[in-house]
Design a protein around this nucleic acid. Structure first.
Lengths: 234, 234
DNA sequence: GACGATCTCGTACAGTGTGCGAGCCCTTTG
DNA sequence: CAAAGGGCTCGCACACTGTACGAGATCGTC
């Protein structure tokens, strides 16, 4: 077994003031959260750390490896309730919300998440706790995997689309209302041949953005959990 | 309303042999499908078209706009059954499968899809037909949006994760069996502290990859549709 | 034949990830 | 105390990116 990113970590044995993987990850996370994926360059990151551009490469083999680290950092923020506390269903709901808000806190995640599998330690820990939670529902061993996977996929898929919308608003620099009216205009002109779509866009833009997105999320998650629950009772 | 990418299309009025947006999109699609996002550069694309690197910019303002075009091209491949043919539920299932297989045909999609909203003409057409389909189920106007959105999010989320796995296999260059055993090894070593996860990984790698991923997809979609269906009958 | 529109493309610029190797500092060994 | 060696930093260089700019080619129309 050749050592992976996760196992091979340099440690400073000297008291000299030195960089560390922790610092690097923290600084990179900061850039990512505020400026997005395109805002993260090795040179900028190094500048933020008051270091030479290539010094980072002592701690991390490639930029991609760094991003793996950052992704796993996010998985570390998810909390997965233990089933004893509130039961399976409530736990799954909480898990979903925790996952969603973590992604909203780190809106760069969808852009990079789907290009690699997550096998870092935090991902493993989250997965493990998730399996315990879903295991308490009474699924068969095989269905535990399927159920947890479908919930995670739904949540991540939904919130990824949500992020796309929200980032659009943010990048436009305009206020939310202005943006809504603009996108309405744009969508209308493209969708003029499709009255159903036109009406749907109007419906969506008529309501509060935050509330709408949240309702969206909850509606589907609830439905999915209903469907899953019915699969266990037999 | 300032003209958008969708409305502003150059048309060759001269018989002279000239580039066209259609050619460009087709060539770019080819590169994307075979080499992925990182394989698409304006220079390489131009070379494939036997043209100067910057000639493309006559038809397309930026690379990002080109990608918008390409994404919409994919939405054009989705078929959405009319509800009269097979009913709502069967139609939704078909829609889901069509969506999934389109993404599997264009595995670069998840990487770019979540960085922008889809408001091209094909997206609108797909959305419109989707709304008709879900409308036939008997939801309220508002719930139609929610239901369709949740199904699309589930499908795209699931298949995006699926693509991440599949691309990993492809990029490793190794055969599927070799990769499976390797990832097992890697995951095991990281997950050694998490027995549930270790067992789950073993379960997944024990079965056929294709079959497993498909079962995964169908299981969740079915559960979600169950949950949605129960919301309409009251 | 002249003009304006359409279209192509060479050059250039600022930026990217990162391989390489020179050099600094600190600890350990003799 | 000196020498050796490992841990760590960083300047330089390379190949590559997206694309702004402006000069030129080719066309239809007057």
């Amino acid at each position: 077994m050749k050592d992976s990113i996760w196992t091979r970590e340099r440690k400073a044995t000297s008291p000299r003031e030195t960089l560390s993987r922790k610092q690097i990850v923290a600084a990179a996370m900061d850039i990512l959260d505020t400026e997005g994926v395109s805002g993260l360059s090795m040179r900028k990151l190094a500048a933020k750390l008051v270091a030479g551009a290539t010094s980072i490469y002592w701690y991390v083999d490639t930029k991609d490896d760094l991003i793996d680290l950052l992704i796993d950092e996010v998985w570390g923020e998810i909390d997965v309730p233990e089933p004893e506390l509130a039961g399976w269903r409530a736990g799954a709901l909480l898990f979903g919300h925790s996952l969603r808000s973590a992604v909203l806190r780190h809106p760069w995640l969808p852009e990079v998440m789907y290009t690699r599998p997550s096998i870092g330690p935090n991902a493993m820990s989250m997965g493990s706790r998730g399996l315990v939670l879903f295991g308490a529902a009474g699924f068969s061993e095989h269905e535990i995997d399927l159920a947890m996977g479908s919930v995670m996929s739904y949540v991540l898929g939904t919130v990824s689309a949500e992020v796309a919308t929200r980032e659009m608003v943010r990048k436009s620099g305009r206020s939310e209302e202005n943006w809504v009216s603009e996108i309405l205009e744009q969508a209308q002109s493209v969708a003029s041949d499709y009255p159903e779509m036109q009406k749907s866009v109007r419906r969506r833009t008529a309501m509060d953005l935050d509330a709408g997105l949240t309702e969206n999320f909850v509606f589907g998650l609830d439905a999915l959990l209903d469907g899953l629950e019915s699969r266990v009772k037999k």
